[in-house]
Structure formats: structure tokens, C-alpha cells
């Protein structure tokens, strides 16, 4: 039950969408884009989101693309649901991150774009996209931009006013690379993460991205560097990597800072063993 009402628009093209936004914004409607609609219905009822107009991007064909051709680029539309991304098996690295978000029924509604642009701090779908140096396709009144994930996703999705996420693109080579993913929760199988950790092995080195540990999801080159230092023992690598966590580790109702680090340590160990064929 939302206590405020809004106007609803469902444009069928990118141009129509961005023009609508521009106009509604000028009219003071504080428009927002939506796709799955799960966040406006849940945060709206708690007064944490407010708008007088929503623009539903699900009707835009580019937002619904799911494409991969041999040796080329994987393209995933932002309006696809997490279930669709997972079931397509188009990019296991991404699918396995999506299937750990929320619960199954919610994943039938939450979209990839919705998770990436979420107000809630976890945004776990970005982990594989950080690891695979993906490209984000965003549309705005000035046209379409293609940007590296590292440029546009810094702690959260940094869109300009009036822009929305259309697609993400990932090099097809990442489809077959070995990766490790684990989501650790407080105790319940359906919950936000204590930490979600995804690691990808490219050639002989490991890339690492984590959600839930700090107030935002990140990929850390400093931590990767420590983990890839094969001169020292695996435990020492982990110890050093933990010293390189890029931001304060959070303490909240799901777990204390110390416990999160404890969980991280074990999960890193599992990841390294899994990807490295190392024995603990």
C-alpha cells in the first residue's frame, strides 16, 4: 500500500523514455525510472522513496536483450529479471550472483537493472560485472553512453540525472573462466548477506569482489595483489588482504565487524582453495 500516488508511463523506446523524464522533471514530478518495481513498492511504503511519476523501462526493447554470439560480447538487458538472467545460463558468473539475491519469487520480479541501481547497500549483481570489467550502456537526453563499470559504478551506480541503465556488456571470454561465489548470511537462507564474495580466476591470477563487508560493494585491486602473492603462505596472503579492505567494515544487526572479518577469512580460504587447487 503506497500512501502517495503517481503517474505511470511505459515508453517503448529509449528516446521516448529520456524525453519523458526531461519533461516530467521540468514539471517538478521528481520522476524515477523503474523496471521490476519491487523497490518503489517496499521503500515507498516506508516513506524512503517518493515520486509523482514513474517511467517503466520494461517496454523498451534494448532493455530486454539477452544476446551472445560465438566469441563476441554477452549483452544483458537491464529489465531482465534475476531469474531470467540465471536461467539463461548466458553468463554463469553473473547468473550465480543473481540467484543468491532475495528469494526465488522475488527474483521473478527484481530486475538486473533494479538491483544495480538499488538504494539498498548490497547490489550484489555488480560483483561479477566488476570482476569482468564489463561495460554499462546508459541512455540520457544527450544520447547513449557506454562506460566501463569502473567509471560508472563507484560504490553505487553513478547515473546523471535523467539517465537510465539500458544494458550491460561483458566480453564472452568470461563465460568459461573458473570462478567462486559464496554468500554468507547471519543464519537464515533468505537474508541480506553478511558478505557475498565472488572471485574469478583469469589466467593465473585471482580477482575479488565483495558485497556486505563495507557499506558498498567493491572490487579491490589491493586485496587481489595480496592474494596473488604466491611467495607466501595462503594464510599470510589472506591476513595481508584483510589489511587492505578498502573501507570500514560494517557492524549491524546481521553481524559485528569482527565476525564479518572472521567469515571473510574463512570464505577467502575456501575461494583460494577452490580456484587455486591449493590445500589448506
Amino acid at each position: 500500500m503506497l500512501h502517495f500516488n503517481f503517474d505511470y508511463y511505459r515508453p517503448s523506446s529509449i528516446d521516448e523514455a529520456v524525453e519523458l523524464f526531461d519533461k516530467l522533471d521540468q514539471d517538478g514530478k521528481k520522476p524515477i525510472y523503474l523496471s521490476g518495481g519491487t523497490e518503489i513498492t517496499t521503500l515507498g511504503r516506508l516513506n524512503q522513496v517518493f515520486t509523482k511519476a514513474v517511467i517503466d523501462v520494461k517496454g523498451i526493447p534494448e532493455c530486454n536483450v539477452l544476446d551472445y554470439k560465438q566469441d563476441s560480447v554477452v549483452v544483458v538487458g537491464a529489465a531482465l529479471t534475476l531469474t531470467q538472467v540465471w536461467e539463461s545460463k548466458i553468463l554463469p558468473l553473473l547468473g550465480e550472483a543473481c540467484v543468491r539475491i532475495g528469494d526465488r519469487t522475488s527474483r521473478n520480479q527484481i530486475t538486473l537493472g533494479g538491483n544495480l541501481a538499488s538504494e539498498i547497500i548490497y547490489r550484489e549483481a555488480v560483483l561479477p560485472l566488476l570482476l569482468s570489467n564489463s561495460t554499462f550502456v546508459v541512455a540520457g537526453i544527450e544520447g547513449i553512453r557506454q562506460l566501463s563499470v569502473h567509471k560508472i559504478f563507484k560504490e553505487k551506480l553513478r547515473l546523471k540525472r535523467g539517465e537510465f541503465l539500458v544494458q550491460i556488456k561483458v566480453d564472452g571470454k568470461y563465460r568459461k573462466m573458473p570462478f567462486y561465489i559464496e554468500k554468507k548470511r547471519k543464519s537464515e537462507r533468505v537474508d541480506y548477506p553478511l558478505i557475498t564474495l565472488e572471485a574469478l580466476k583469469v589466467d593465473r591470477s585471482i580477482r575479488l569482489a565483495i558485497s556486505g563487508l563495507c557499506a558498498f560493494p567493491f572490487r579491490s585491486y589491493e586485496m587481489e595483489k595480496e592474494l596473488n602473492n604466491t611467495d607466501i603462505s595462503i594464510e599470510e596472503r589472506i591476513d595481508r588482504a584483510i589489511l587492505r579492505i578498502p573501507a570500514p567494515v560494517i557492524s549491524d544487526i546481521r553481524g559485528s565487524r569482527e565476525y564479518r572479518i572472521f567469515v571473510l577469512r574463512n570464505t577467502l580460504l575456501d575461494a583460494l582453495i577452490y580456484l587455486g587447487g591449493v590445500r589448506a
Partner: peptide, 16 residues
């Protein structure tokens, strides 16, 4: 009270 929703007040789910 910080645990006022099923997202923060966790109860057992199917499968556990």
C-alpha cells in the same frame, strides 16, 4: 527496536 520486518526479524524458512 531494530528488527521490525521479516527482513530484519528472521524466522525459519522452508528447507531449514
Amino acid at each position: 527496536v531494530l528488527t521490525t520486518q521479516f527482513r530484519s526479524y528472521k524466522v525459519m524458512h522452508y528447507g531449514e
